[in-house]
Nucleic acid binder design. Structure first.
Length: 225
DNA sequence: AGCTGATCATAT
DNA sequence: ATATGATCAGCT
């Protein structure tokens, strides 16, 4: 029962509500699958399972997971207090671009509309017992987008000026740049310090947990009485 | 204990 | 190689 792609956000969220509270073993069994004992060699397993369960149809294409409705899905590992455990990968950092702007950036476009699906991620919980939380369909508030834009511009200025090797994961209040590759031997072309080309580690943009924690909070917050 | 840099699997 | 999906694990 591989579901058809949802044709509306309402249809998607109906499916999301139906799986809230279920654990990974229950969801996997629907597709005749069994969760791995550990995620060490299956790091994207839960995310790919959720895509199949919810009917994502973009595969490995550089498009939103739910193409018809333009929604990107991200699983979000959380601890017992409901706080995100890991940073969230967004997309590759373009290392050869010279004059990109925030409005047309890959980061902004990826984060336009996101379905966040919290999943228990504490390592002492067996993978098959980890439960799905309440999914959140989200778009950045103007304040959130502004914060991301500032980080993005600071970081991309450095990339364009040939200072990629000076960038560390400590930079960026909410958006950071970190290596993203099979291992540290992988290299790709980038703008060098003299404007020429150099080889460097491929990098990715990641959302810090302090950002995704805010996304979760914005939903749990009770309306004023 | 949290964070940064490194790493793992699969598809195209 | 680079896109997709992320988590691991040593260092501070």
């Amino acid at each position: 029962m591989s579901p058809i792609a949802p044709q509306s956000e309402a249809e998607l969220m109906q499916r999301v509500e139906q799986i809230a509270g279920m654990d990974l073993a229950m969801l996997a069994s629907r597709l005749g699958l069994t969760p791995p004992d550990t995620l060490l060699h299956h790091k994207g397993w839960a995310g790919q399972l959720l895509e199949k369960i919810l009917g994502a149809d973009a595969g490995s294409l550089a498009e939103p997971d739910f193409r018809q409705i333009g929604v990107e899905m991200k699983t979000l590992p959380i601890n017992r207090n409901g706080q995100p455990i890991e940073a969230t990968y967004v997309c590759t950092v373009p290392l050869q671009t010279l004059g990109e702007n925030w409005a047309s950036s890959w980061v902004r476009n990826k984060l336009k509309r996101v379905l966040w699906v919290p999943i228990e991620g504490d390592r002492d919980i067996p993978v098959h017992n980890r439960r799905i939380g309440q999914g959140i369909l989200w778009s950045p508030s103007s304040q959130q987008e502004e914060a991301l834009r500032q980080d993005w511009e600071e970081l991309m200025d450095m990339v364009c000026l040939g200072d990629i090797e000076k960038i560390t994961a400590k930079q960026g209040a909410y958006l950071q740049i970190r290596p993203k590759a099979a291992d540290s031997t992988v290299k790709t072309q980038a703008v060098g310090s003299s404007g020429g080309k150099i080889l460097t580690h491929p990098r990715g943009f990641y959302l810090r947990t302090r950002f995704t924690a805010e996304v979760l909070d914005s939903v749990h917050r009770q309306p004023p009485d």
